Amino acid sequence: MAHMEIRFSGSGGQGLLLSARILAAALARQGRHVAQSNAYEPVSRGGLSRSDLVISDGEAAFPLARRVDYLLILDAAAATVSTHLLHQGAVVLADAERVPDPPRGDFRTIALPFTETARGLGNPRVTNIVALGALCTLAAPCPAEALLDALLAMTPARFERLNRDAFAAGLAMAVQEPA
């Protein structure tokens, strides 16, 4: 992989920025070059939120996504704001519950039960971690072990078991998706 662009999108309070920082840290530890940018509305919860990662083997000098390879959508509010950045062959991962009408086009759209799975684990606040596991399987930006290490290093130890379970559930649900 010489270059990849990933956008995490949804609403404030869903942990999107944390997920992007975790992935960026894992990639940096793997020797990849990563530029990250964030944008969010000035409300702590509920406003539109996104984080872009531009990943490269060489310098990733521009932090804004211009041609998204993987778009993760966790809220209906973000369902259509990034479709102009998708190209043929791009993959959209949408939360099946919170994004009932995901974008359709000349790209692949996959609706997965991120929120439902997190709720089943006992805490819907780990929806972002479930989604991160699925993204890791489908996009393969780095080894799952490297991403798990970054996740555990960047989150409170008291949530280790829950984060491990959420990440594993995301990895497993994406394995079931046909290529």
Rank of each mutant, 00 (worst) to 15 (best):
G58S: 15
P124M: 07
V91T: 07
V54L: 01
S82W: 02
A96V: 06
L132S: 04
A90I: 00
R125G: 15
A77D: 09
P103F: 01
I73G: 02
T109Y: 11
T127N: 04
D75Q: 11
R66N: 06
L135F: 04
D69N: 02
A118S: 12
L112S: 00
Y70R: 01
P102N: 04
A60V: 07
V54W: 00
A134L: 04
V81D: 09
R125V: 15
L121Y: 13
D75F: 10
I55S: 00
T109A: 09
A76V: 15
V130H: 09
P100V: 06
S51P: 06
A76H: 10
A79H: 03
G122P: 12
A79Y: 06
G47N: 10
L85Y: 01
P113F: 11
T115C: 10
R66M: 05
Q88A: 08
R50C: 09
R50N: 15
R125P: 11
A111K: 07
E59V: 13
S49G: 10
V99I: 10
A111Y: 07
P103M: 02
G133W: 05
G105Y: 08
A77W: 09
C136F: 02
D75A: 15
A90V: 04
A131P: 05
T83D: 01
L85R: 03
A61N: 05
H84L: 11
R104C: 13
L71E: 01
I73F: 02
V68H: 07
T117F: 11
R50D: 14
A111L: 12
G89A: 08
I129H: 12
G122D: 12
L48V: 08
A79C: 13
D52L: 02
L135N: 02
Y70S: 01
G105I: 04
D75E: 12
V130D: 05
S51I: 05
L86F: 00
R98C: 14
L121E: 12
F107N: 03
P102T: 03
G105T: 12
R66H: 09
P124V: 11
R66E: 02
F107E: 03
L64S: 06
Q88E: 13
V68I: 15
R66T: 07
A60D: 06
T117W: 05
